[in-house]
């Protein structure tokens, strides 16, 4: 069965305060990196999945992202999906 590789990026919705991001932004200024206007912290999740075809893989990862990896009340997610062969990115 084909193997698919997905990267799901989860981030806090822009309307939700990200205090950890704000603290990191303050630390960046102390490091001497100036000019940062926005710094938001999210999660990157790598999933490898066997599925009969790309459409099925897409649907499964979308379900996973929407119902488990992200909480749509506070988070947005985006998805990059690729078919892999022998562990290599296609």
């Amino acid at each position: 069965m084909p193997l698919f590789s997905a990267h799901v990026q989860v981030s806090l919705r822009s309307s939700v305060l990200d205090p950890a991001g704000e603290a990191t932004r303050a630390a960046a200024a102390r490091l001497g990196v100036d000019g940062i206007k926005t710094l938001r912290i999210g999660k990157s999740i790598h999933v490898e999945l066997e599925a009969p075809d790309r459409a099925t893989a897409q649907a499964q990862i979308e379900l996973l992202s929407d119902r488990l990896l992200a909480n749509p009340v506070i988070e947005d997610w985006s998805l990059e999906l690729a078919e892999t062969h022998g562990g290599q990115q296609a």
Binding site: P19, N71, V73
Partner: peptide
């Protein structure tokens, strides 16, 4: 309870961390 949808909304990181 919020994650399972019995109550609305979500609990997030305290404002001052």
């Amino acid at each position: 309870l919020t994650e399972m949808g019995l109550l609305p909304g979500a609990l997030t990181r305290n404002q001052k961390l």
